[in-house]
Design a binder for these strands. Sequence first.
DNA 1: TTCCCTTGTGCGTTATAACGCACATGTGCT
DNA 2: AGCACATGTGCGTTATAACGCACAAGGGAA
Lengths: 196, 196
Amino acid sequence: MDTDDITLKLRDVRAASGLSLSKAAELTGVSKAMLGQIERGESSPTISTLWKIAKGFQLPLSALIGTDALRDTNDGDLFRTVTFPGSIAVKIVFPYDPALGAETFHVDLSPNQRYDSAAHAAGVTEEVFVLDGTLEVLRGGDWVPLQSGQGLRFAADLPHGYRAGDVGATFLNMHHYVPTNGRDLAAGQPAMEPRQ
Amino acid sequence: MDTDDITLKLRDVRAASGLSLSKAAELTGVSKAMLGQIERGESSPTISTLWKIAKGFQLPLSALIGTDALRDTNDGDLFRTVTFPGSIAVKIVFPYDPALGAETFHVDLSPNQRYDSAAHAAGVTEEVFVLDGTLEVLRGGDWVPLQSGQGLRFAADLPHGYRAGDVGATFLNMHHYVPTNGRDLAAGQPAMEPRQ
DNA sequence: TTCCCTTGTGCGTTATAACGCACATGTGCT
DNA sequence: AGCACATGTGCGTTATAACGCACAAGGGAA
């Protein structure tokens, strides 16, 4: 999905409305020369003018931008690595997306390695799916044993921890945050600490 | 939803990944001075640079633009009926939870077996993580090849499909639905005003 | 035909997005 | 203390988005 699709979208939208460039310019507050250039792909509009156009046509921005571009991530060719406080390295399988409120990590623990996590924000839920080895998850006050191919879902707004077995453990770790409505982004922060 | 929220979104996204401006600049190909100005609302980025940023962070554009602004006016209510049409055997790893809006399946395809899925409801996002074998995912007209350990996130409100390789494929399939809590979707806000 | 209007595009100027570099501050380390 | 490094911001320059205006092409209507 490319950004040129905006040109097609705008052309279709304007054609559907039956408006000329002049009237569209008068309606949106964007000069008709600029509208023409955008439609021809000769200019990459700023979001400010994109917003003017969407407002003039009384349309959401999604009507101008390709829907695939709004949600498809880049092909997961290479994973970025992030380090949690506690010095375990995890790989990002699916990065945090505010629209989903979810992120997925790929974690690898050496034999008998343990990692404890403090309580996250209220409402945060974690899921664990063991890919290889054996793992124990501290949920509430109990260590829940998991084998390869097994999963566990638990509330992460309590202290919890992970402990690998004698052969180590590899598992996926999904974080689900509470849906952030609008601007209260501070409430649904992902759990990745600023660390390198 | 105001376009200034892009500043908040970008700040939040960058903080979530724990990246500095310098590293974010190196990752996205956008100068750190520009990233800083965007975060501070001192500049209205073009969609071209917005695309660079999204690509660098491996995020969809919706992670940077306010979701309210993107919502389609006639979306209507989304149905949470999960219909995973029969012909293939799936195992429920994590059942559907209304609080999360997510569910996870464990799918096993025999060699060269193919499964096509019709478009789901608008806004549904799927994630695929290959556990074993090789898999190809039909996303937006293209077959994306995936190997064991690789993942892909894509919009599932378009026709999509799965095709196993010569050795079959085992993969996790996560479905993310959109929370249906009523929100202001027609709220049009003015664009960012040019500075003087 | 001529006149008038509207269509979309091209041109020159202005505003500003984007860049590279340098600076001030802060933090950790010895 | 001092040093080294990283962070984020300010400055000057370049690239380009956006503007206003003017032009050429295509319709009708007389």
